[in-house]
Amino acid sequence: MGEIDAMKSLDDSLSSLEKDAQRRVLSWAWSKFVGADSGEAAPNIQGVKSSGKKVGKKKVPNKGAAPASGKKTVISMDKSLNLNPSGKTSAEDFVAAKKPSNVQEKCVVACFYLRDMMSVAQVNVSGVYTFFKHVGWPLPTDLKNALQKAGSSGWLDTADSENILITSTGENLVEHKLPKSKD
């Protein structure tokens, strides 16, 4: 099968799926054939048809997005989070064990900790912000964008900033690849 035939087959296969399923398949394919460890960021596949044309969307207000005036959105601390719980691993100890080396890895570690160690039902930008502040990490200029970049790497699903999900690739990063071994 040639490259053009493969593209036609992919287009035929993806066209029959709903948009969310298309994203999952493309994210899986990217991870399998290019890999999150390649250093190459996954393309932003949200809102793109399999034909490569932009899908028209209704203009929907985006919670947490910068206002049109150019002012940045202020993210608030989630004061309900106890990141030093008794009987559980503290956020500081978890970070020390995982040793994430860049801001995207830190975003995934924060989301993983909140979901798996703290049992937060819906991880959001405020929770990640609170985690960064609590462990003393410098904040990225645009935290929401940093989370989306971690999503582009296949580690997070950031389609809903009020319910950030960790993909199986993100789980594998935290559970099996961090801390990075020295080769």
Rank of each mutant, 00 (worst) to 15 (best):
V48W: 14
D37T: 14
E40L: 14
R23C: 09
G39E: 02
V25Y: 10
D12Q: 12
E18V: 09
P43I: 03
R24L: 13
S27T: 15
S13N: 09
F33K: 01
K49S: 14
A21I: 12
G47K: 02
L26W: 08
N44H: 02
S38D: 03
S15G: 11
S27C: 10
S16K: 15
S13A: 15
A36S: 14
K32W: 04
N44E: 05
A41T: 01
W28Q: 12
A36I: 05
A42R: 14
D20A: 08
V34P: 10
L14C: 12
G35V: 05
G35N: 03
E40S: 03
S31R: 11
V25P: 02
G47I: 00
S38C: 03
G47C: 00
K49I: 01
A41N: 06
W30L: 06
K19P: 14
G47Y: 07
S31A: 14
S16T: 11
S15H: 09
K32C: 05
V34Q: 05
Q22S: 03
S16I: 11
Q46P: 00
G35H: 06
A41Q: 07
F33Y: 08
V48D: 02
G35P: 04
A41S: 07
D12I: 08
V34W: 02
A21N: 13
S16L: 13
K49R: 15
S27P: 02
E18A: 12
E40M: 12
A36N: 09
S38L: 12
Q22A: 06
S27I: 00
D37C: 08
K32M: 07
R23W: 08
A42Y: 03
K32D: 04
S13E: 11
K49G: 10
Q22F: 04
L26I: 08
W30C: 10
F33D: 00
A42P: 06
E18N: 14
V48T: 03
S13G: 03
G47R: 03
V34C: 12
S27K: 10
V25S: 02
G47M: 04
E40Y: 13
Q22G: 04
Q46E: 07
L14R: 07
K49C: 09
S31M: 09
K19A: 12
S15V: 02
F33A: 07
P43N: 06
N44F: 00
N44C: 00
A21E: 15
K49F: 12
Q22W: 06
S13T: 14
S13H: 10
S38M: 05
K19S: 06
S27L: 01
A42E: 01
G35K: 05
K19H: 10
L14T: 08
P43A: 04
A21W: 09
V25I: 01
A36Q: 04
L14I: 10
R24P: 00
F33E: 00
D12M: 12
L17G: 02
V34F: 04
G35Q: 01
A29N: 00
E40T: 14
A29Y: 11
A41W: 06
D20V: 10
G35Y: 05
D20Y: 13
V34H: 03
S13M: 14
V25K: 09
L26Q: 14
S13Q: 11
D37L: 11
R23T: 04
A29T: 00
A42F: 04
L26K: 12
F33V: 01
N44W: 00
